[in-house]
């Protein structure tokens, strides 16, 4: 099965940024330090032709991955064909090297949640996700990388833990894993797991790409505090440490993307974080196994 892009195509680790209009000028001015960009697919489903031409031109200058947020692959409900067709058209229009989507459900019974929600972690949702990934792969022509999500709620009605559930989908579908280390870290601290122990239980041999981002602690009812993955803050040290560990545990080439959705710092600060990611992964690679 063809698996979406990622570092394996070039046999080396790659580092890049999520493409956001606010970062465009900075990214274009520093393509010598950016190997790959990741474009939010939904931003361009209804884009003007001129914007799509610009995106294709961009893809000719730097490796590009499309990142979906609205398919709802991890669902017992089949993904609608028209949603997959939009990915097909955007892949063809842009010439992107691959695509990714989240292990989430985003709607139910016609109700749009508006963001990525964790489905019940059960055998049934594993089977549903595998069916959806198989269908998407057939229609789009290459398999997605699928991404673990962050959650503020322990997914209701679950029978499996996150690592077991993710293993089930990755092994069952054959898709590669886009491992979001801040999402993993967030879930670990929110629900009492050790982040490094949780990392070790993920299917690390199937990781093809990595997301890094930041978040903040928020207050809930009855004095509760949980970490929110908001993409508005710098990547914390703990996440770089997980990247180091990932490099120590695995040997396949990885594509590492920093996601930033707001409170944009100067591009120099994001490039510094990319350098920290390079350093952390390289150090992990060199560490004794």
């Amino acid at each position: 099965m063809a698996v979406a892009g990622a570092g394996a195509a070039e046999g080396r680790d790659r580092f890049g940024l999520g493409w956001r209009p606010e970062l465009a000028a900075g990214i274009l001015a520093h393509l010598d330090r950016i190997d790959v960009i990741e474009v939010i697919a939904e931003d361009y489903f209804d884009a003007a032709r001129a914007d799509l031409r610009a995106l294709r031109t961009l893809a000719s200058q730097v490796s590009m991955m499309l990142h979906g947020t609205s398919l709802g692959l991890a669902s017992t409900v089949p993904v609608a064909r028209e949603r997959l067709d939009r990915i097909v058209r955007l892949m063809e229009t842009t010439g992107a090297e691959g695509w990714s989507e989240h292990l989430a459900f985003v709607r139910g019974g016609g109700i749009e949640i508006g963001h990525l929600a964790p489905p019940p972690r059960t055998e049934a949702s594993i089977e549903g996700a595998c069916r959806n990934i198989e269908c998407a792969t057939r229609i789009i022509g290459c398999a997605p990388l699928v991404e673990n999500i962050a959650t503020l709620v322990m997914p209701p009605a679950s029978r499996l833990d996150e690592a077991e559930w993710t293993q089930g989908i990755i092994r069952g579908s054959g898709a590669g894993l886009l491992l979001d280390l801040h999402n993993l870290y967030t879930n670990a601290v929110n629900f009492g797991d050790d982040p490094h122990a949780l990392l070790g239980r993920f299917p690390l041999d199937q990781v093809a790409a990595v997301h890094l981002s930041g978040g903040r602690w928020i207050d809930g009812p009855n004095g509760a505090r949980r970490l929110l993955d908001d993409h508005l803050h710098d990547v914390p040290l703990a996440v770089f440490e997980l990247l180091h560990e990932l490099g120590r545990l695995g040997s396949q080439p990885l594509t590492v993307i920093i996601e930033r959705d707001g409170r944009f710092p100067p591009i120099a600060r994001l490039l510094e974080q990319l350098d920290l990611a390079r350093t952390a992964l390289a150090a992990g690679r060199m560490a004794v196994r």
């Binding site: 697919a41 931003d43 361009y44 508006g114 963001h115 959650t151 503020l152 709620v153 809930g220 509760a224």
Partner: peptide, 26 residues
Amino acid sequence: GLVMAAASFRAKRARRSRRPPLLRWI
């Protein structure tokens, strides 16, 4: 968690509705 997640999703929907179309899914 349900209360916190619902509040987070509500905020996301509100933020998205205020953004120009090209940025809605961020």
